[in-house]
């Protein structure tokens, strides 16, 4: 059944297909337009460079008047990402506006990667290393970047098994 939220999400999808911002991609699940898979590529010239970080976006019928819940599936080491993968990002909470769409949400998260907000850390260890021991911070982030590639490989293996 088509609802206002679903119609708007189909428009978001069209926009993602026609002019996706660089380094992000997203598409709804084939059987559920309210749930999206997304990938953010770590921006170049940052410790996150070339990482393929996967996220899930869950929308409800209140969208776009309420923000979706957004969660990293990939392991993240970032001052504003909780261990659960959930994000602490103002535009997904009290600064949400119904003029945002999937494309602008993902662009905001992408720019958050190299521009963390240290004043409200979701991961205190990451925030402290970012402030005081930058080289260690970078090392930990690089580990998550490498893990993000492994996850992709794992999934490919699973696909191979299905084929057998």
């Amino acid at each position: 059944m088509s609802t206002p939220a679903k119609r708007r999400l189909m428009r978001d999808f069209k926009r993602m297909q026609q002019d996706a911002p660089s380094g992000v991609s997203a598409s709804p699940l084939p059987d559920n337009v309210m749930k999206w898979n997304a990938v953010i590529i770590g921006p170049s010239d940052t410790p996150f460079e070339d990482g393929t970080f996967r996220l899930i976006l869950q929308f409800d019928e209140q969208y776009p008047n309420k923000p979706p819940s957004v969660k990293f599936i990939s392991d993240m080491f970032h001052p504003n990402v909780y261990a659960s993968g959930e994000l602490c990002l103002d535009i997904l909470q009290n600064r949400w506006s119904p003029t945002y769409d999937v494309s602008s949400i993902l662009t905001s998260i992408q720019s958050l990667l190299n521009d963390p907000n240290i004043s409200s850390p979701a991961n205190v260890e990451a925030a402290n290393l970012y402030k005081d021991h930058r080289s260690q911070y970078v090392k930990r982030v690089r580990e998550t970047v490498e893990n993000s590639w492994l996850e992709d490989d794992l999934e490919d293996d699973e696909d191979d098994k299905d084929d057998e």
Binding site: T3, P4, R7, R8, R11, D12, R15, P64, P98, D101
Partner: peptide, 14 residues
Amino acid sequence: CGICRVSFDGTCPN
């Protein structure tokens, strides 16, 4: 319309 992204000459989703 910035909220529903449909043309003003069209209608809101409802």
